[in-house]
């Protein structure tokens, strides 16, 4: 017990110890998204859906939950089920095998909902573009509100994008 307390005191507060996101990111926000985002200004619950990414985007999403980024301090939560979500964060090109599950998840998420395409693959299929096993970027299957580019986008950039979306 003493060791645990000692460790916690020694470590102190690490939240915020990360380099700031570079300015001038090319995040694109659909006009309709602003209005929807207003609903979630104080609390936003996210469900992450991987439709075929290389898992680097997942690792950056996971990093957001770490004490360094601590996404919860902004009132952003990560939900275990799409039924509890306000926003879907979709990563990866949509593969032929994941197209069905993606549409199911979209249907299950209650309205109003935001769809955020995270990473180059979700936006334009990236390096996997054209493959027989890829059926298109996310917006070919479900309407996308926000696009955060990067391969993968850094956690600070994702955080910045989510903040901007809700402030505007």
């Amino acid at each position: 017990m003493f060791k645990i307390l000692k460790k916690s005191f020694k470590t102190g507060i690490v939240t915020g110890q990360y380099p700031p996101a570079p300015t001038g990111q090319k995040i694109s926000v659909a006009p309709t998204a602003q209005k929807k985002a207003e609903l979630f200004r104080k609390s936003l619950t996210i469900r992450e859906v991987d439709t075929g990414s290389c898992n680097a985007c997942e690792m950056e999403m996971n990093a957001l939950a770490s004490p360094i980024y601590d996404i919860e301090r902004f009132g952003i939560h990560i939900a275990a089920s799409p039924r509890h979500a306000d926003a879907l964060v979709v990563t990866g090109p949509v593969t032929i095998n994941m197209e069905g599950p993606l549409k199911d998840v979209f249907k299950t998420t209650p309205n109003q909902k935001l769809v955020i395409a995270l990473g180059d693959c979700a936006i334009n299929c990236g390096i996997f573009k054209g493959s027989y096993a890829v059926t298109g970027p996310v917006d070919q299957h479900i309407p996308v509100d926000v696009r955060i580019p990067g391969c993968p986008p850094r956690p600070a950039e994702i955080l910045q994008a989510l903040e901007d979306l809700r402030k505007s």
Binding site: D50, T51, G52, S53, G92, P93, T95, I96, N97, M98, P101, I127, F128, S131, Y132, A133, V134
Partner: peptide, 11 residues
């Protein structure tokens, strides 16, 4: 598995 099959070897 193979939900994420992207056709890497063909690419």
């Amino acid at each position: 598995h193979f939900w994420k099959h992207r056709g890497v070897e063909k690419l």
